[in-house]
């Protein structure tokens, strides 16, 4: 294969999406390591999986459902107990300037 599976730019991008602050040295290091991992996993491509259904879950069970019944929540005080920053009722985060892109 020769060519790296993941280049430096991709590592930078993935780190950014995961909010990881990596040093330049780490980025190079991870590019090498992640490429090696992907190369290893790529061995699976040697198998003919054309007749194998994609696996949605590793457990052979489904429909774990619960009835719509109210359970005790933590309450505001406990919920906020471990928050790095909070006021009486809310988590506090650095001021958000942008609207969400999600949903």
């Amino acid at each position: 294969m020769g060519q790296k599976k993941i280049d430096i730019e991709q590592v930078r991008q993935v780190a950014k999406l995961a909010r990881l602050a990596l040093s330049d040295a780490e980025i190079v290091q991870f590019a090498v390591q992640l490429s090696a991992i992907l190369e290893y996993v790529e061995k699976l491509n040697q198998l003919d999986t054309s007749k194998v259904e994609p696996l949605a879950h590793c457990l052979p069970i489904n429909n774990c459902l619960r009835t719509d019944e109210i359970k005790q929540s933590l309450g505001t005080e406990k919920t906020l107990a471990n928050a790095p920053q909070k006021d009486e009722q809310f988590f506090l985060v650095p001021k958000i300037l942008e609207e969400p892109g999600g949903l």
Partner: peptide
């Protein structure tokens, strides 16, 4: 998702 409340000051409040 929860709700962000953009109030005055340097913080935003989050209600989950």
């Amino acid at each position: 998702a929860g709700k962000n409340i953009h109030s005055e000051g340097n913080f935003s409040q989050v209600d989950l």
